[in-house]
Design a protein around this nucleic acid. Structure first.
Lengths: 191, 191
DNA sequence: GGCTATTATTGGACTGAGTACAGTATTGCA
DNA sequence: TGCAATACTGTACTCAGTCCAATAATAGCC
């Protein structure tokens, strides 16, 4: 890597890419910045980009992806005889508990600035789907039902949808926003 | 159009494209057929394809798109003083009422055959989102709340998610499946 | 019939995401 | 020091989707 000359790299390529992308998204909007531009500003080749991210949209959803990962892991530790829905609610809230005021995913924070409603939306939806999968697997496991049972899937999709709404409203709330978990709690209560 | 020689065309380009696509999806899977192949088999230029469809995935979701269109239109006719949720439920069921046993969207019917779970999923999700928008607009209108109210959005997303689950289970049910509206009704009851 | 405005269709050139693969640095470790 | 694994790069490719200008076809009108 020509620009990072000396010994072991001070910053990982991953971080360089993320920083470069964040800058460019703010300058030019998400849609108008190309992967080539990101790689170039990060001082990294285009292919290195794809070593760290499978798609451009990955850059927008780091925080959310991590929360879903946590949710999946934590749901595995729920006692088999626990009541499914209360346990699910508690675990969902725990998975977003440490997401505070300043940690807003890029995609949502700068939706307006970036003017990418449509473009970010479809990549965000795949997170909704993954979360629904995680929840459905938990419900099926916990309630001894098939993973493709209609009630299980309907419940899981409904819950995932409500959480999506919470993220959206939270992110749009601007500087005076409360912790994400409050929004998620209220969204779940709406069911 | 070289292949359709005589007078006025017997079949519209749109139908030719749809038929060609359906054939090719079955032969080669959705992901493995290109727009060029579809256009070629339909005896139409590539650009003509884009005159009729904005994306390849449009070909998969005709039935669902139409149902969402109906839902949107019908929701506008609901009396302003009607109780929102019961009216919504009735309108949703009406919008899928005439979708019978044999009318299964391509995307879902041939999910296995086409082996495109991942590829069809993201395009299907945009339908989920559009339906959620339609429902949220209705709820906000009917209840006198802001369209970005958390409760409104959470409810709309949850309902749209449940409906997605219903479509999925319905389509996967195979030949012995019941009318779609039964699945949708059960999914909504799960909330 | 012939004329005209509109619409359908086409060709061609382009951008940009994502993939494949082989080759070259770099690094960690023995 | 050397070797194996890993990080990085170059190049070439496929395909979706966009843009624009040009041509065919059609419907309506006289």
């Amino acid at each position: 890597m020509s620009t990072r000359s000396a010994g072991r790299p001070r910053t990982s390529s991953r971080a360089l890419i993320e920083d470069a992308a964040a800058e460019l998204f703010l300058e030019n909007t998400y849609g108008a910045t190309t992967i080539d531009q990101i790689a170039q500003r990060a001082g990294v080749s285009r292919n290195t980009f794809f070593n760290y991210f499978t798609a451009k949209s990955d850059l927008l959803w780091g925080e959310l992806d991590a929360a879903i990962d946590r949710l999946e892991v934590e749901l595995r530790t729920v006692a088999p005889d626990a009541d499914a829905l209360p346990a699910l609610r508690a675990t969902i809230l725990a998975a977003v508990a440490d997401i505070g005021v300043d940690r807003v995913p890029l995609a949502l924070t700068q939706e307006d600035v970036m003017g990418t409603r449509e473009e970010t939306r479809s990549s965000g939806l795949t997170r909704y789907a993954r979360r629904a999968d995680v929840i459905a697997a938990f419900l099926a496991r916990q309630q001894g039902l098939a993973p493709d049972d209609l009630t299980v899937l309907a419940t899981a999709n409904a819950i995932s949808g409500a959480i999506s709404a919470a993220w959206t409203v939270w992110a749009r709330a601007g500087v005076q926003r409360h912790p994400l978990s409050e929004y998620v709690a209220r969204a779940l209560d709406a069911l």
